[in-house]
């Protein structure tokens, strides 16, 4: 598989929490390359690998949804009032191009306050004051846009220097790509246990897709493949990993210490670059749901370092995606 191409096409697909179908259908078509036994259930993409019924049952998850906005009201002038769908940084919204996922996709721009009206440029607008201009009257807008329609930042993805890629929804489409790449690496290998791949919905609003899928799948071991913070000059080394330095293996009271250690040993043994990401409580990822699913499962986070999280200008290094995939693949070959 062409990893760059996979990441970039996943990144351009639209899929805000609760309306993931475009991205999910694309991910399903990619997963079909590796298994016929796959489907979309309650929005989640689920694919089966390995030996059915053979323990341990390993779940490999990446979330398919992305942050966005939701239409809450259409004003008399045809502007859209909105609320957030996931963790939005209000500071970056002004003058962003967006696509409203209405009956047909509608391009729009988030209103910004013109300078002659602005007395204080240090202010950040409240969500209640933010609105979207779709260039339509109320009557025109109501024909194609309904309350509840989701809004994405205009999908965008391109290559930067070296192996860096920037795009609108790399969180967590690069995780989806890492899982697909891992399945690509092991496609001709005989796995010794049951493996289920999950591309889950609604992570950004509270890991809800992961909760219902985990109940159905009932795994013994769960790998949550997501993104985490890559260091930038305005952030703290204490909170961040480094871009290009490999997968960030999670260590936390809510994760299984033995599983985290096992991944570290595999990385060392296979000479794969890795970093440790130590958290002191819940991880803010689907792993938090997996570990307490039904009677419990051993969970670990495998995170790809990403800069500028939750902005339309997220940046990753493709080498980190490849190394995360290799780490997952090496684990799958080992687990019995």
């Amino acid at each position: 598989m062409d990893l760059n191409k996979t990441i970039m096409s996943l990144c351009l697909a639209k899929g805000v929490s609760g309306d993931e179908s475009e991205a999910a259908e694309l991910a399903l078509s990619m997963l079909k390359e590796y298994t016929d036994d796959c489907c979309i259930k309650n929005g989640n993409v689920i694919g089966h690998f390995g030996v059915k019924g053979k323990k341990p049952h390993v779940l490999i998850d990446a979330h398919i949804d992305q942050i966005g906005l939701v239409v809450t009201h259409i004003t008399e002038d045809g502007f859209l009032k909105i609320s957030n769908c996931g963790g939005i940084d209000r500071r970056i919204l002004a003058a962003q191009q967006v696509v409203v996922m209405g009956n047909v996709p509608v391009n729009g721009v988030i209103c910004s306050v013109p300078p002659h009206l602005e007395t204080d440029e240090s202010k950040v607008p409240e969500m209640a004051d933010i609105c979207i201009d779709v260039g339509m009257s109320k009557e025109q807008a109501e024909k194609v846009i309904s309350l509840g329609d989701k809004i994405v930042f205009a999908p965008h993805c391109e290559k930067l220097l070296g192996d860096r890629i920037s795009g609108t929804s790399l969180d967590d489409r690069c995780g989806v790509a890492a899982v697909l790449r891992a399945m690509d690496i092991v496609k001709d290998k005989a796995l010794q246990c049951e493996v289920t791949v999950l591309f889950s919905t609604q992570e950004e609003v509270g890991e809800r897709g992961a909760k219902i899928a985990a109940f159905d799948i009932d795994p013994d071991i769960a790998l949550a493949v997501d993104v985490s913070f890559a260091l930038t000059s305005d952030d703290s080394e204490l909170k961040c990993g480094k871009m290009g330095k490999g997968c960030m293996i999670g260590f936390s009271p809510v994760l299984d210490r033995g599983l985290s250690e096992q991944f570290r040993e595999i990385a060392v043994g296979k000479e794969l670059p890795y970093q440790t990401e130590v958290m002191s409580g819940t991880t803010g990822t689907n792993a938090d749901r997996f570990s307490v699913n039904r009677g419990g499962a051993k969970a670990v986070t495998l995170s790809i370092p990403l800069k500028y999280m939750h902005t339309p200008a997220e940046v990753i290094s493709v080498s980190d995606v490849e190394n995360t995939a290799r780490l997952i693949a090496a684990y799958l070959e080992e687990v019995k």
Partner: peptide, 8 residues
């Protein structure tokens, strides 16, 4: 890109 520290 002109990025920004993660809101988190």
């Amino acid at each position: 890109v002109i990025g920004s520290k993660a809101v988190h």
